[in-house]
Nucleic acid binder design. Sequence first.
DNA 1: GCTTAATCGAGACGGTACGTCCCGTCTTGAC
DNA 2: GTCAAGACGGGACGTACCGTCTCGATTAAGC
Lengths: 228, 228, 228, 228
Amino acid sequence: MDAEHARSVGRGAKVLAAVHAATLAELAEKGYAALTVDGVAQRAGVHKTTVYRRWKDRESLVVDALAGHVAADVPIPDTGTFEADLTVLARALVRLMTAPSARALLAAVFSDAARLPEVAEVRRQIFEDRLRRAEPVVARAVSRGELPAGTDAAEVIKSLAAPVYLRLLMTAEPVDEAVADQAVRVTLAAARAGAFGPPASSPSAPSPSDLGPSGPGSSDPGPSAVSG
Amino acid sequence: MDAEHARSVGRGAKVLAAVHAATLAELAEKGYAALTVDGVAQRAGVHKTTVYRRWKDRESLVVDALAGHVAADVPIPDTGTFEADLTVLARALVRLMTAPSARALLAAVFSDAARLPEVAEVRRQIFEDRLRRAEPVVARAVSRGELPAGTDAAEVIKSLAAPVYLRLLMTAEPVDEAVADQAVRVTLAAARAGAFGPPASSPSAPSPSDLGPSGPGSSDPGPSAVSG
Amino acid sequence: MDAEHARSVGRGAKVLAAVHAATLAELAEKGYAALTVDGVAQRAGVHKTTVYRRWKDRESLVVDALAGHVAADVPIPDTGTFEADLTVLARALVRLMTAPSARALLAAVFSDAARLPEVAEVRRQIFEDRLRRAEPVVARAVSRGELPAGTDAAEVIKSLAAPVYLRLLMTAEPVDEAVADQAVRVTLAAARAGAFGPPASSPSAPSPSDLGPSGPGSSDPGPSAVSG
Amino acid sequence: MDAEHARSVGRGAKVLAAVHAATLAELAEKGYAALTVDGVAQRAGVHKTTVYRRWKDRESLVVDALAGHVAADVPIPDTGTFEADLTVLARALVRLMTAPSARALLAAVFSDAARLPEVAEVRRQIFEDRLRRAEPVVARAVSRGELPAGTDAAEVIKSLAAPVYLRLLMTAEPVDEAVADQAVRVTLAAARAGAFGPPASSPSAPSPSDLGPSGPGSSDPGPSAVSG
DNA sequence: GCTTAATCGAGACGGTACGTCCCGTCTTGAC
DNA sequence: GTCAAGACGGGACGTACCGTCTCGATTAAGC
């Protein structure tokens, strides 16, 4: 708390920031497997020992670096119509996820680092965060009478976001506004048709169980869906 | 053709299969970064040098092991109704992706191995394969008059699969038949409403451009969506 | 012993000779440590397996190849005078040991191969052989009255040969006729002076024990003088 | 000079000494061909990588270990008489060469390691060193009038040492004081008789050329006498 | 000339050691 | 009191040969 400590903390903070930045950069450039403490240290203009003094190992370093970057400002629209709100949400998501920093973060949380529970949790929260914040949009639409009561807000938002992530993670297709707008169209149509309501409210659907049992073992995601 | 080197080929094939299996198992258990050639060799009951005799390095080993396991038999339903077809497809996808082997494959293609272009390509093809094979279902529905002409088959299938992958990869929620059935409801409703048709055919939608420009840099898929 | 065996032995003999020659050549070129069964086999125009079929291992191969080359024809002179005999002997030795084949043999028996008792024995015999055959020269000189009775023939020959070997093995000096002739001068002078007779016959020598004890442990050659 | 890295140098020096000793020990025990870096490292209580950090490869390690052990203190006698000096020299040589450490060194410089020019040079210098230091003994004897002027000091010393090396390297006979004393008798007699003087001064010798030409190729020492 | 059994060629395999790279720990001197 | 510098133990890499093994191909004798 005295001035001398303040200065070392000051220096320490500078080192910490530099190392964080270097870690994210290396992570984005080379991935988790090829990330080297020495590499990070050199990029941060710091000696290897200095890094090891503050972080136990490579993992802690990465977790720590990522943890500070989960929060992404997603402005929650309130334009007055559900469609416009969805459109704003979808386009913002696209913009956000195609930014370089987001791609780096995505690469990190889908690297081997995801074997660490903390990193897997970061990945989960990236989505959860946005989900929670976007749900009011649905609630407002329901209260406006645009959507049927009982509409599952979380499902609506997932439906909106899912195609974007599918393209980002699986198909490697371009992700642009057209993708966002298409997601809006689908989600909007399904929501208006009550597809996000309680299952019983789908009168024209023959019971899926008519198709017979689906066999055992269809669920159990495990703690980490991908890397576990 | 000749039974001459059938036996030596037989031995070779046995080694090859054992190593492939061991590679996938290690990949699933420990991830790419922690995958060791010696570990794979021992699990396969084979000596390290034997592995190096057939594969140039760790990467080739992993790529080769994954490449041989892309194909997954997805039975294409033809029940007579679009809804039933979709339900079969969705449930099959859920069953397939929640099987241990598929989780291992998924873990592998989302590990640091994904930095290898070949592995990224494998990941892409996992989806593409199933997409292509499922498209006829949509075509048949259109020809039966169940769906509007101009419905984009690929988009329909993506819409069906996206929620499943979202849960598998991002949210780590349980993936079961309920998820499949919900995806069917949404996709079905949207498809019937023409949401997979040409954009201009959506009369009730105010032009998204009313919301103003979206800013720069909203696309750029890059060769590998996640790891690039 | 039947004809069929004879012919296969015939082929075998050709292979055997080729491998022997190749072994010696490789030995001379690269030394024992770098001698490779595969290398020998290829030089012999034969497959590795064929070599292993006949010899247990590298060592046996080398031992066997060397064993057949110990014998070197040393003509024993009988010119009528001791000096001329010595000169012939010394020059023959020089000629013999500076020939390429002898250098190869020498290199082999002074390589790590000498750790094998058989090879060490070969080395010992190389000298012993020549020693035994040369001893009559001294005997004749004694009987002619050129040398004192009681002259130790073996010591005389060793004295003659020692400078040659010293130069070959230790000092790497040129070994030529001058060396031979110098050895003759020394040995001749010493022999005439009775230096190879019984120790007591050296009247002018003060007892070496006047110099005091020499300390313990001055002998014990071990089984192999060099490599043991 | 500064005590600053005295301690780190101290540690380094300790490692260096341990590895040197271990190298020589392994060399003596197993020979050069069977010498293993890992084996040396373990014997030295050090990790393999530490060895590779200081030495490029096995060869450098061996060369370096041997080079540091060439120097052997040979006390040069000055008793007042040539014979006593020779006796001291010869007995000291015997004592020296029969010591375990010398046998190890000898085994090393006559192993396959001798293919390395540096090791061959070490071997050469082992002898040269002692030769140079012993020459004054002859010079003093000449100046005292014990030996004829023009006596070749180097030849005298070689004559004294040669029988010892012959027994050590070729015949594997015991090497003890008797050998030393016998070498003294021979060398002394020959020296007194002028056998180490200029060739022309040997009046009783018929020209060796009376024996005719010796054929071609009698010299060519090559860089390494044994292993070349 | 055809068959048959030994020998050879070919090469996969388990195994040992090589020499390299990087990790994470530790010690030490300098600022 | 932190930092830079770097030696160290350690684990894995990918390479080169070794000596073993199992085959098919060759080949030369005996029928």
